[in-house]
Design a protein around this nucleic acid. Structure first.
Lengths: 341, 341
DNA sequence: CTAATTCTGATGTACGTAAATCAAAAATTT
DNA sequence: AAATTTTTGATTTACGTACATCAGAATTAG
């Protein structure tokens, strides 16, 4: 049988109350006694039964997800996953609240973050915008001992506890290699469609993409980046214009959202041109386009995994526990038409 | 506050004892009363607090992993992950035991399975060998109300509760497309190295690979499959022989384990021939080969995820709970040199 | 050496559920 | 209607931990 607090008490030769004081870092224990108890804990290999402890504490984890609004399938999926997680609240002792903020609006994000300061929370997850005042706002929350997890897009340089998202530089590099190798030595132009250079994930994807392109596929030339603000309408307009304006485009990398606009443009203007296309985020639209050959590869981050991972990390951080590192690494999924889930 | 058994009792107008009898399907409750209680449970949306229930029951989950012996990195990794899971036993209320059986030995596997029948277990995970008597042995365990999960290689047609592994047909198809597109229209021969056609995962990978090759890359010709028994030495010998015997081989697909033998052969005999190589399972050897360009892509199943998923599913099945489907889907990882973890 | 202070022990209640016991009530049989 | 059987209720203990209270012991200060 696994050791309990009674076993520690017996081993250390103290009472249950003292063990409890040590375990829960309550005052009123002499240093020597405390060390005696801690030694006993180590010796008999006691590990606190978190379930029992939570039961006794009546612990619940009030969590907040700060999510940007946005009419694209990826964001819809992300919202859906958070709502899914809400339905599991009873089991997981969570109380999840969603706070919506306008997309790409750093000031609004800062306001949302600051509004949380002082409230009774076990954790905050946010899709970060890479701006100094956002960083400062996050640091304020961390300083107030609140677990903070960035979701999808990271905020390096801040003191956030964890990032639940993919390695976007690696994603960009991977996209470049896929595109480069699929094009098999042909030369021509590559168009990159992004959402906004304001968010770190898009900047990083571009950075990775450009560096591999330059180093390994010099026969391919990168055209200036199109910024579609993750909006299908804008994306459609930009890509249509680019394709009709040039015949030397042979590849497209879409590193943001709003791909149903891109796909519409491809079907209207890109038909029969033998374009090789790599995009991000598996949605109903990109899935269909992958299947019918409009798109050649989809890079994806599983929003469900990201949300569940964020929740696990926030809970663990709130309890001062550590997490299974391998389990919390969000992997980059590569989908070809053959391995669609 | 979340409803408790007391709330059900009050809502149904019965005593706590009766609620308990209904909840735990104990006898001694009239049908009408039982229905009254069940209605109350639905009405107030009661969900049992599993943590508290397990605490009260003193529940532990004795689990068995039946793993094949085998001197290849993938199996080493799998063992390591199970041992990792053992270290978390205290937290997870599991008691994990590993049973080793010789690889590719159906009779030994059947014996190991039958030895478990009648023992007090909460679940069995096994790397299945696709043979009728293995299927029968698994069915016997399932009939004895024991949760059974296949790991890495499935056993379709059996009554196993769950398969914790990747879709191997999709894996084979994906490998074919990667190889085909990376070769960019060249024509020549493709060599396939497998472990054994006895295990379903290898058969399925080959099936998927061959079908996409035939349908979409007719300029590539498949050579007869080499069976390396997942053994590095045998793999090395077979591939070396194949490469020195033919100059028309331009691609290799290794769908089993034992790749350090393949890599040795490639470095010795395949240098400078511009071979395109796709292999399975990310290990230290395949990782290094991917980085130095000996290999072009690695398809991988994350053994850690498989083991953790198997444990979650066995526990949930033992409790009659259901699982988060999306969370238990084991994904096929595709690694290029750019997205190595 | 006494008084004040700081530690420590003993004990009880709570969390939400499981499981057992025994008495009482209701339903069924004779 | 009595005897029997089946249902139900009331109550208690337990799981492992948290947390509070109060008394007694040990330590420190005066």
């Amino acid at each position: 049988m696994r050791p309990t607090v009674y076993d520690i008490a017996a081993a250390a030769g103290v009472s249950l109350a003292t063990v409890d004081r040590v375990l829960n870092q309550r005052p009123g224990v002499r240093l020597v006694t405390r060390e005696k108890v801690e030694a006993a804990i180590r010796d008999i290999g006691y590990v606190r039964d978190v379930a029992a402890a939570n039961l006794a504490k009546g612990r619940v984890y009030p969590l907040v997800f700060i999510l940007p609004t946005g009419d694209n399938s990826f964001m819809h999926g992300l919202y859906a996953e958070v709502r899914q997680a809400m339905t599991r609240s009873a089991f997981e002792r969570t109380e999840i609240r969603i706070v919506e903020v306008p997309a790409f609006d750093a000031a609004a994000l800062v306001a949302a973050l600051d509004a949380l300061n002082g409230t009774d929370l076990a954790g905050v997850a946010l899709v970060a915008i890479d701006a100094p005042d956002v960083r400062a706002a996050v640091d304020r929350l961390v300083a107030a001992r609140l677990p903070v997890v960035t979701l999808v897009s990271d905020l390096t340089g801040s003191t956030r506890h964890h990032y639940a998202g993919v390695d976007n530089i690696a994603a960009g590099r991977t996209a470049a290699r896929l595109l480069g190798r699929f094009l098999g030595g042909r030369n021509g132009d590559i168009t990159v469609l992004a959402g906004s250079m304001l968010v770190r994930d898009h900047r990083e994807r571009l950075e990775g993409f450009a560096s591999v392109m330059a180093a390994e596929f010099p026969q391919l030339r990168l055209l200036p980046v199109l910024e579609g603000r993750d909006d299908p309408e804008i994306a459609n307009a930009l890509v249509s214009e680019a394709l009709s304006g040039s015949n030397s485009i042979i590849g497209i990398y879409s590193l943001g959202a709003g791909n149903r606009g891109l796909i519409r443009a491809l079907k209207a203007t890109g038909q029969g041109r033998g374009l090789t296309v790599v995009v991000h985020e598996l949605t109903e639209h990109t899935r269909a386009a992958l299947q019918d050959g409009t798109i050649d590869a989809v890079l994806n981050q599983d929003a469900g995994h990201e949300v569940r991972s964020a929740i696990r990390v926030m809970k663990a951080t709130a309890d001062g526990q550590d997490v299974i590192a391998g389990q919390e690494r969000i992997r980059l999924d590569i989908f070809l038409k053959d391995n669609l889930p």
